[in-house]
């Protein structure tokens, strides 16, 4: 067992543990905070794969911006245990079915992976910013531009909705 395996196990336990805490904690603010911990552990996995850019962007975008907005909304709405909507069993059943279907999909995808080639150690320059930029702007420039147009329209849409008098 080398240091990488050890770190991997530690991160995975942390990730799964905090994800469970996020789902089970009663207070919405605690849920949001646990979700932030999950994002950090995922960033740790990215660093383990030598994808430093992805790791730090994950933190900047998700932990640093999106979750701040989540926290913002949760704090402003002042959600408490008393005001939590009554759960009905039909909704829970639907949730179980949908989650189970997703689990099946993920398991079937994992089954197909060759277990010997999960991680390439010490050769992983793929995740560094240079190769990422080369790939995005040379090989995948059209999808990249299309997704930027999508983002732009989302921004404009948000502004239009926000300006509603």
């Amino acid at each position: 067992m080398n240091i990488t395996t050890l770190v991997f196990i530690l991160l995975s336990v942390l990730a799964v543990g905090s994800a469970i805490m996020m789902i089970t904690s009663k207070s919405p603010v605690n849920s949001v905070l646990w979700l932030i911990v999950v994002f950090f552990t995922i960033s740790g996995h990215y660093i383990l794969l030598n994808a430093q850019f992805l790791a730090i962007v994950n933190i900047i975008v998700y932990a640093g911006a999106i979750m701040v907005l989540f926290l913002f909304v949760v704090m402003l709405m002042n959600l408490n245990k008393e005001t939590e909507p009554v759960k009905n069993y039909r909704l829970q059943l639907i949730g179980i079915v949908a989650g189970g279907a997703l689990l099946l999909l993920i398991i079937s995808a994992i089954m197909k992976i060759d277990a010997q080639q999960l991680v390439q150690m010490k050769v992983g320059d793929e995740g560094l910013i240079k190769s990422l930029g080369m790939n995005l702007f040379k090989n995948y420039v059209l999808p990249f531009e299309i997704s930027s147009v999508l983002f732009l329209s989302a921004i404009i849409g948000a502004v239009v909705i926000g300006k509603k008098d």
Partner: peptide, 14 residues
């Protein structure tokens, strides 16, 4: 690290 400035930015956003 080769993403030093992004690291700074990430910590600032936290």
């Amino acid at each position: 690290i080769n993403i030093g400035i992004l690291y700074v930015f990430g910590v600032v956003s936290l």
